[in-house]
Design a protein around this nucleic acid. Structure first.
Lengths: 104, 104
DNA sequence: AAATCAGTTCGATTAATGTCAAACGATCAG
DNA sequence: CTGATCGTTTGACATTAATCGAACTGATTT
């Protein structure tokens, strides 16, 4: 079996703006967001993100973003990928992700 | 003399997105932002904001927002007003403030 | 001049957060 | 089966941040 989503993600209807902002008010997670901007799924492996962090720290940031409704996880064997929930976010918070990704 | 702006505000060119997000990733300051959404200057006095906080706490939040580039202060004698730097913010972070104010 | 008022600053307390290392669980390779 | 790999969880530590009350500053009023 592969690509089953099996980490719990919140319904965006229950996510508040302040939750999303808290999740993104961190340089590491903002960098992760930028990488995810291409709309594709990215492996959780360290080299992917251009960040000099331990894997446990990275794992913490992934969890934070997922619980804030920003990402979903795709599990395939022992590797994981994450994807930005861009369409759903655009419905819940129109224009927000776009403006964040456009900022330099 | 009145309405001289005399609290230092940063040049938005030097403000990073993460600074703005940190400043807004708080329910109190998000509420203040909503009040400022009408574009007018609002007095710092407590009844204005619908928040049950001591004045020293409110003062802390105003300072945080000002230093993040979100607001400017207008001093008139012993009373102060603050205003959202909306036009400048729209140039530096296009669409961001609008999407935040539209979120429910 | 003295009292009052608006707002800031300071110090203390408490809670939340980012980071790492170590241990753990599950999957895959030999 | 054994060992390596991917990622999570846990616990510890240090830092940041929100809040309050008290003291303070400067402006206004009496």
């Amino acid at each position: 079996m592969s690509n089953d989503q099996q980490y719990p993600i919140p319904d965006l209807a229950e996510v508040e703006l302040v939750d999303v902002l808290r999740a993104l008010a961190d340089p590491v997670r903002l960098q992760i967001l930028q990488v995810l901007a291409d709309g594709r799924a990215h492996p959780k492996s360290q080299p992917e993100w251009g960040l000099d962090l331990q894997k446990s720290t990275l794992s913490h940031h992934f969890k934070t973003m997922r619980e804030a409704g920003l990402t979903e996880t795709l599990v395939d064997g022992r590797t994981h990928e994450i994807r930005l929930r861009r369409d759903e976010l655009a419905v819940r918070f129109p224009g927000l992700i776009d403006s964040l990704l456009a900022a330099r």
